[in-house]
Computed example of a mutant assay.
Amino acid sequence: MAGLLFGTAGIPYSTPKHTTQNGIHRVAELGLDGMEIEFVRGVYMKAPDTNPVRILSDLLRIKLSAHAPYYLNFNAVEENKVKMSQHLLYQSAKMAHLCGAGSLVFHPGFYLTDSPSAAYESIRDNIRPVASRLQEEGFDITLRPEVSGKVTQFGDLKETMALCSEIPGLLPTIDFSHYHARTGKYNSYSEFSFMLSTMADYLGENAVLNMHIHVSGIDYSPRGEKQHLNLADSDFNYKELLLALRDRGCAGLVICESPNIEEDALLLKETYFSLA
């Protein structure tokens, strides 16, 4: 993958009839490069549904990723919730792979009453069997734990990088907007560059050549993320982020999660290619 590609989190709102295939068509019409299939409220596809999606995305050269259900928690107290999280991660990855997606984004869980270090161990140990099973069964898909926006959620930058360094088949989804909301900082060229260097320190320089990135406007409080906003309504410094990504030579897929997903995705792409 050379350079950055830009796409939408889900089917563009301007798509006449909201189906995955129509969304891929609309992404191509808009001049965007990718789309994240949203399994966030459930894995709505069956295996027979995936072949037309894969064929169409290949034909139109639209890069696909997918997002697992929001309600995974690999640090749940109840064993049945952990088992369900493992099942849903596996099913999401399987359907995403069959669609031709190269990455599956997921939220690993919450700290609950545990310390971050205890939560880390539980989350690592409960994700590892799923990653191993997918590799053993030949599913060529990267599991991508997401840097999270709330301080109650697992997903600090360094713990996300550490998790990926310990489990084969994992690479991060860096949501730069989330991390700005989580910390109240990390909104400048130097801070974005530091995040990229941290990623390379943990995972090697090749990791910045295979990135999955989320960007949006963001509203936040001392507890972190409150809601996504359009970029124009937020203090998120997307121009300096794009400059840092370009100067580092990053490659991968940038997914826009603003409420006006296709408009801000186009803004990001146009801004990136207009950088001096």
Rank of each mutant, 00 (worst) to 15 (best):
E29R: 12
K63V: 13
V77K: 12
R61L: 10
E29C: 03
E29L: 09
A66D: 05
I37L: 13
K46L: 12
A68V: 12
L60S: 07
P52H: 04
A28W: 06
N75I: 03
L32R: 01
D33T: 08
E29P: 09
G34F: 01
N51H: 14
V40I: 15
L56I: 09
A76Q: 06
D49H: 15
L32N: 00
P69Y: 08
S57D: 02
F74W: 06
V27H: 00
A66P: 00
K63M: 09
K46C: 04
F39N: 03
L72E: 01
A76T: 01
H25P: 00
N73S: 10
G31I: 12
P52V: 01
A66N: 05
K63R: 15
P48M: 08
P52F: 03
E36I: 15
L60C: 12
V43T: 11
M35A: 01
E78L: 13
L59Q: 14
E36H: 09
E36D: 09
I62K: 00
Y44R: 11
G42E: 06
L64R: 07
D49E: 13
R41K: 14
A28K: 15
S57W: 00
L30Q: 01
Y44D: 04
S65E: 05
P48W: 10
V53I: 15
D58Q: 11
D49I: 08
I37K: 03
E38H: 08
A68S: 13
R61N: 14
N75A: 15
H67N: 08
S57I: 07
V27T: 11
L64S: 07
E79I: 08
L32Q: 01
A47G: 00
M35H: 10
M35E: 06
Y44M: 08
L59S: 14
V40N: 05
H67G: 07
A28C: 11
G31S: 09
E79H: 05
V27W: 00
M45A: 11
V77D: 12
Y70A: 07
S65R: 03
L30D: 01
R26V: 06
L72R: 04
K46S: 13
R41Q: 12
H25V: 11
M35D: 02
A66Q: 08
H25N: 11
N51Y: 12
